[in-house]
């Protein structure tokens, strides 16, 4: 098991944003966490990355308890996140952004890592010397994903990679996520676009106001009446 989250509870002051959430991710899987805006998806990912802390419960990554580990240690252990809204460094070049992704890795391997990222995202190679702020939204999303891949993660968490992208780009991004998985990547995918997420995931969890209300193989969730009604438009 790559990731095992057990009974985490996260608060923003008095707001109880994540309630007794437990789930796990196995090696080589795409697992998706779906839910409406404000359900607590990003909060869960931030907690796993160590930006927020859970009250009680535990988070284990590759068998190691990381519930109180600092973010830089978690990243070094191989757990990376491409955050919501991309959050690329707009004033830095594409290449510099990628270097930052490999911050916890020895500099000597950067060239090879960058070539692998460029093979996945040829557009980034064309624009390697441009500031990230000059890229289009889709290109920025590719950069955010490429930057995360630079750390050669054992678990790749993505927070709404399709957010704000034109449908054709959404298809492209999901295709790449599928490719990464076929290459052996383990992925935790957070999405509001439930249909797309469930179509490439092995398993899914449905989050409603901070609580997991359903968990099942993705194919079953796609057929589930409640899920259809609430998240798949009928």
């Amino acid at each position: 098991m790559v990731l095992k989250v057990e009974n985490i509870n996260v608060y923003y002051g008095a707001i109880h944003a994540v309630k007794d959430v437990s789930f796990h991710v196995d090696e080589g899987e795409i697992v998706t966490l779906i839910g409406a805006n404000g359900a607590g998806k990003s909060t869960i990912l931030k907690t796993i990355s160590g930006l927020l802390r859970s009250r009680g419960g535990s988070i284990a990554f590759m068998g190691k308890n990381i519930s109180s580990a600092p973010t830089n240690v978690i990243v070094r252990d191989g757990l990376i996140q491409a955050p919501e809204g991309r959050a690329v460094f707009l004033q830095m070049t594409v290449e510099e952004n990628l270097e930052m992704g490999a911050f916890t890795r020895p500099k000597s391997g950067n060239h090879a890592r960058m070539e692998r990222v460029f093979a996945l995202f040829p557009r980034l190679k064309e624009r390697r010397r441009q500031p990230a702020g000059t890229l289009s939204g889709g290109e920025q999303q590719m950069l955010a994903m490429g930057r995360a891949l630079m750390s050669e993660p054992r678990l790749f968490m993505m927070d709404e990679p399709s957010m704000g992208l034109a449908p054709i780009l959404v298809d492209q991004i999901f295709e790449i996520i599928g490719d990464l998985n076929r290459l052996g990547g383990t992925i935790l995918l957070v999405e509001q676009n439930a249909r797309m997420a469930l179509s490439i995931a092995a398993r899914g969890y449905v989050l409603e106001t901070g609580r997991i209300i359903k968990s099942a193989p993705a194919a079953d969730l796609l057929e589930d009446d409640d899920v259809k009604k609430a998240y798949l438009g009928g």
Binding site: S49, V75, A87, F89, M100, G101, F103, T104
Partner: peptide
């Protein structure tokens, strides 16, 4: 936040 998520202390 983003810097932190890259493993920068």
């Amino acid at each position: 936040n983003a810097a932190s998520l890259m493993g920068i202390n």
